[in-house]
Design a protein around this nucleic acid. Sequence first.
DNA 1: CCGTAAATGCAACAGTGTTGCGTTTGCGGA
DNA 2: TCCGCAAACGCAACACTGTTGCATTTACGG
Lengths: 140, 140
Amino acid sequence: MIRAAGVKVTRQRVRVLDALLAARQPLCHGELDAQLGGDGDDNGAAIDRVTLYRILDSLVGCGLALKAVDPRGVFRFSAAGAQRQHAGHVHFRCTDCGGVFCLAAEPPPPPKLPRGFQLGEVEFDVRGTCAQCTRAGVAP
Amino acid sequence: MIRAAGVKVTRQRVRVLDALLAARQPLCHGELDAQLGGDGDDNGAAIDRVTLYRILDSLVGCGLALKAVDPRGVFRFSAAGAQRQHAGHVHFRCTDCGGVFCLAAEPPPPPKLPRGFQLGEVEFDVRGTCAQCTRAGVAP
DNA sequence: CCGTAAATGCAACAGTGTTGCGTTTGCGGA
DNA sequence: TCCGCAAACGCAACACTGTTGCATTTACGG
């Protein structure tokens, strides 16, 4: 599993990758730290902050995880498989509460690129106010 | 000018807003700090870091500036007018060098939103490899 | 079973962003 | 023009995120 990616398989890496795979959203470093420290089943010891960064970096390096930046300016990591579910469809980002919603709509075809540019992936982000914040913003 | 936004007009605010208006790209805090300190014409004194943050926050609060996060996880600020030029068209982001290019293509129409959602703005980001990095990546 | 290189943990550091507080300054009013 | 107040400014210190260096432990191959 992890070995196939060409790195050593250790208990910590398995734990981190498990946490990433179990998460439905990309996790920031703090959430991962809390989650791994709060398990308390086999070993309650929290993973060192530095080790966590290094594990995440290596996972990103071997393609098992993806790194992104959230609106607060902190890095969030997600398992590569989970990201693939989100690639290729449209997201709605609420500018009020910061929540992200997945829309059912198909993404439009990519536009023509200048000569020499290679297409990677397409992200169609729609920003606005979600239903809940719209309702909360009108009443008061 | 600034006064119309409902805040006091001070020399520092004018300087910051000038720098933002003169910049073609969103500036991070460090660049603003360096630019305002390196002017050296009327007063070479650099603006205090904290004051700069507060000025930027107030400019954002009164709608004169916009705040964003760059891939490195630092905040970038831009004048509201400059942002409007970029709204509503397509950007190409090179995953290799991190550069951003503006494409001439029209953005596609926004998709249907669930009930209660209010449309704000639409961002169509295309990621891939730019011409320069493609060339550099093939040869070596 | 042993050796090596990678992985881990600890400590310390750098950069970014924030908070508290005293002083200065813009701006309205006397 | 002068005064007073609230906002803005500057300084110091702090919190958080992310990084680097080095000694120790551990996975994995011989």
